[in-house]
Structure formats: structure tokens, C-alpha cells
Computed example of a mutant assay.
Amino acid sequence: MTLRDHVALVTGGSGGIGGALVRRLAAEGLKVAVHYSATREAAEAVARETGGVALQADLAVASAAEELVAAVETSLGPVDVLVANHGRSRRRELDREITAADWDETFAVNTRAPFLLTQAVLGGMRERGFGRILYTSSVAGLTGGVVGPDYAASKAALHGLVHHLAPRVAADGVTVNALAPALIERTAMLPGDPGDLAKMIPVGRLGTPEEIADFAFAVLGNGYLTNHVLPVDGGLHPY
């Protein structure tokens, strides 16, 4: 089943990876809602470029997920493709730098919000017999990473969500997967100097947001692929 003319919601759609995802989906004929939290001008620019709509929501607030989905449905129609790409990361060490409030905030944005967004769109997807759910995770969810324990744990929790949901909705035509990128240029989450980081990667360079978007579209377009966490890291971590 083609994705053309379906409605997609891309959260964090104004950033490096998010913007590339929106552009790729729009180029393939989808109607795309570009979510943003604070970067209004960037989100509106991406929406203008792609013929979509920019919608604001603070996904640290529990009620914002359902409100965002309702706004997309009002503007474009029912959501058939959910790409929960937003995330929050702050470089922090384990020893006393992370408070209980920090931990809760990271999980609220990185894990709870994708779950609540999924809850908001899943019923309609199952009724229509078609849906695509894709979470942007991180290699940190598989290896622990270097950003911080709260970040790594929040991304690992997304993997558990994939594995719980996917087999329960597969027969309804809904696929659930996650991408786990590492060291992608033009993003705010690089944990160091890009030149130094590139030397660590077997392919000899950082990945590009467009490469993540290409792979994401391949995953979204494949109705036989579900229940997987798929690393995209230039060969950095073998699995």
C-alpha cells in the first residue's frame, strides 16, 4: 500500500533529522504535520517548503500529545503515519548531576510522549486497517552511550514499547519500529567535536540526516517489517 496522500505527523520536525524526515515524506506525496516545541520559525519554514502545517506542543506536558493529534486531524485529517522523532538530551554524569526531576523530565519527553502519541493515533489506525509508527531512538538505548543514564534509559524504554506493541497490532495492518542512529551531522545531540567523532566511525565520517530519512522511508513503506530496532551508525557498533 502506497504512502502517498496519507497524513504523517513528525514530531521534532524542525531539527536536522526531523526536517529531513519531513522533506522526504512530503516528496513522496504525504501530507505532513511539522511539530515543534520552541523553534517556531524553523518549523514554519519547513512547513512552507513542504506544503505542510507547523503545530506547536510542549510534549513534556502529558495532555499535549492528544491535543497535538487532534490539531493534526483538524488541519490535515486522521494520522496514518506517526514518526515520534522528538527528544531531549543533556550531557550529564551519573554522580549527583541528575536529580529526580531531571530524570522525570527526560522520560516525559523521550518515552512518555511517544507512548501517549501512539495511544492517540492507534485506535484510528486499527479501524482503518493501516498505520505506521516509527520512533527515533538512539544507539545509546542499546549501548548506554555517553550522553547520560537518563537519556540511555529513556531510549531503551522505547525499545520495550516497540516489542510490546508490534505483535499486538500487526494483524490490523499497523507496523511499529524504531531507528537507533548514532553520530549524525547537523544535529544538536553530537557528544563532542564532529572531526574527532568521525575518526571513530568505520565509514570515516558522520551520518547525514538525509541518510536517516531515506532509511526511515524504507521502513515506513514496508508492511512486512515490524517489531525491530534498527541501528544506523556507520558500522560503529556491531549487533
Rank of each mutant, 00 (worst) to 15 (best):
L59A: 06
Y36W: 06
E66Q: 13
S75G: 08
H237Y: 13
E97N: 05
T187A: 07
A27G: 15
V69I: 04
G173W: 02
V46L: 13
G195P: 09
L55M: 15
A101V: 06
E66K: 13
L82F: 11
D193L: 11
V232E: 13
R92I: 09
I201Q: 05
E44H: 12
L68K: 02
V7P: 14
G144D: 07
G18I: 01
E105Q: 15
A60N: 05
A54F: 05
A8T: 04
G144Q: 05
P114R: 04
A64M: 08
P202W: 00
H86R: 08
V72Y: 10
H163F: 09
L220T: 01
T118N: 13
T11C: 09
A171N: 05
E93K: 09
R128Q: 10
E211N: 13
H163C: 06
R96I: 12
I98N: 13
H228W: 08
G12I: 01
V53R: 07
G129F: 03
F130W: 07
Y151S: 14
L230P: 09
R90S: 15
A60T: 07
E67Q: 15
A43Y: 07
P231D: 10
A113V: 02
A157S: 12
V46T: 05
G145N: 04
L197D: 14
V147G: 08
G223P: 13
E49A: 14
E41I: 03
G77S: 11
Y36C: 08
L165G: 11
T11A: 08
L94N: 14
T2F: 07
A182M: 10
G195E: 12
E105D: 15
A42F: 04
L9H: 09
Y135S: 08
D193S: 10
A100T: 11
M1N: 05
L3H: 06
E28D: 10
N85H: 12
E105M: 13
A188Y: 00
S137D: 03
A100D: 15
S138V: 05
R40G: 05
A45Y: 09
A64Q: 02
A60V: 00
A62P: 03
Q119L: 11
L21F: 15
